[in-house]
Design a protein around this nucleic acid. Structure first.
Lengths: 235, 235
DNA sequence: TTTGTAAAATTGGTTGAACCATATAGCGTT
DNA sequence: AACGCTATATGGTTCAACCAATTTTACAAA
């Protein structure tokens, strides 16, 4: 009998949760590192002493969360980064708690100005280069899609420059959720005003002026929120 | 043959993701409301035209996320609220991206002062009562466990009073993650200083003094962070 | 009628085996 | 060495059966 294993002598009705915990242990013990391969499902199931179908439930949870990736004929790999780990949860949060665009924007107003301020204090030369490139990308953009990508890229650089990875990941997700749905809403999205704000924010970060960065970012988001509200009224 | 269904004429190798999307539709169309019961697995599997094992993978994802609840012999219910929806993802975020306590605290420093400021502007009589009760709970607490609960309850009230549900949910999770692991770390957690800060914050919110609330909250968190750092050094 | 209990039906939990689809590795031919 | 076929490994899916807990129903006793 393989692996009597950790603690749970109980009936274990919540086998999936238990399996997830065991996989967590594998990761935290360093037995499986980011990017590396898991044992085959059939093998891992034996090790854990459960049926393959049960193990697959647990693996599917982690795959949808973005913790791991599975490829037919190849294997199961631990994700190198947890990029998309918050996407599905946020989607359901919006759905279940009936969160509005307004509340998402409000969250941005609460957090992003502070992130911009910190970016002004910490930004590296690389960060500044990224910001410049995002601004140029926006100037060159010819359609909504590329414009949105450049917009997201700019804010993403600010998040990265702020040095806080949690906010970085979280707002990346919130941004994409907001901007894509806005892109679907209004056919023509203004570009001049966001662009001028981006330049203002960039200048403040470059000049290490955190107060100015905070202020410009706040104005920028409130402005964008205003545009959204107007465009929604015109529907 | 049941439900030719939405769009995906392709091979659908990602059947789980597709099923989750279909369940999302059920929810967003209002066919299933929070708290209400899903059709039995065997039935729903037929409707979706997939095997029960496949459907169960999708349902398990949503159950672990906290979107729904399953009970043997009873049925599957859509969660009334999405309370815990961010817990597992955050756990894995910490695990995979190797996030430290420091970064979690930093996130608090970034966001919670602003939330306190907003709480000062919006708090209802009910919110204020909750804050008072949390303070009393902390004064009465006799052990770490009840003390932590009261601590969490206080901040939870601030989040609720701020009016932003996203931050409310997110920081509820971050708090619990932080405080429980701190509780395990240091045997005796100071109580006087957090308590005095809580009183200060409460007074500012009650007086509608948002600037003071922001400042007090910032000091409070930085102070707590300092205690953690010291206690970690003594290990 | 009301109540209590046992049987039946319902429903999620788990297992085992089989088969499919794809990617990789190995081998043989050219 | 290069190409192409085959075998193997691996995740994806299905089917069928049984387990375990809960709820419902049926029926007998009070």
């Amino acid at each position: 009998m393989p692996v009597a294993s950790s603690g749970d002598a109980k009936t274990d009705t919540r086998i999936t949760a238990t399996l997830i915990a065991k996989i967590k242990q594998l990761i935290s013990k360093g037995e499986i590192e980011p990017g590396s391969k898991f044992p085959p499902e059939r093998e891992l199931a034996k090790e854990f002493g459960v049926n393959r179908a049960s193990l697959r439930q647990a693996l599917k949870v982690l795959e949808i969360m973005g913790v791991l990736t599975q490829r037919v004929g190849d294997g199961t790999y631990l994700s190198a980064s947890a990029e998309s780990i918050l996407k599905e949860p946020l989607d359901f949060l919006v759905l279940l708690d009936d969160l509005s665009h307004y509340e998402l924007f409000e969250t941005r107003v609460i957090v992003e100005p502070e992130l911009a301020a910190r970016a002004a204090e910490r930004a590296t030369a690389e960060d500044l280069a990224g910001l410049r490139q995002a601004i140029m990308g926006m100037e060159r953009s010819r359609n909504n899609q590329t414009r949105l990508e450049a917009d997201i890229a700019f804010h993403d650089c600010v998040f990265r420059a702020s040095g806080n990875r949690i906010c970085h990941l979280l707002f990346k997700v919130i941004h994409r959720s907001l901007l894509t749905s806005m892109g679907q809403l209004s056919r023509r999205v203004s570009i001049d005003r966001p662009l001028s704000y981006h330049k203002k924010i960039y200048a403040a970060i470059r000049d290490r002026n955190s107060e100015e960065a905070r202020k410009a970012m706040q104005e920028h988001i409130l402005d964008a929120q205003g545009l959204l509200t107007k465009s929604a009224q015109n529907e």
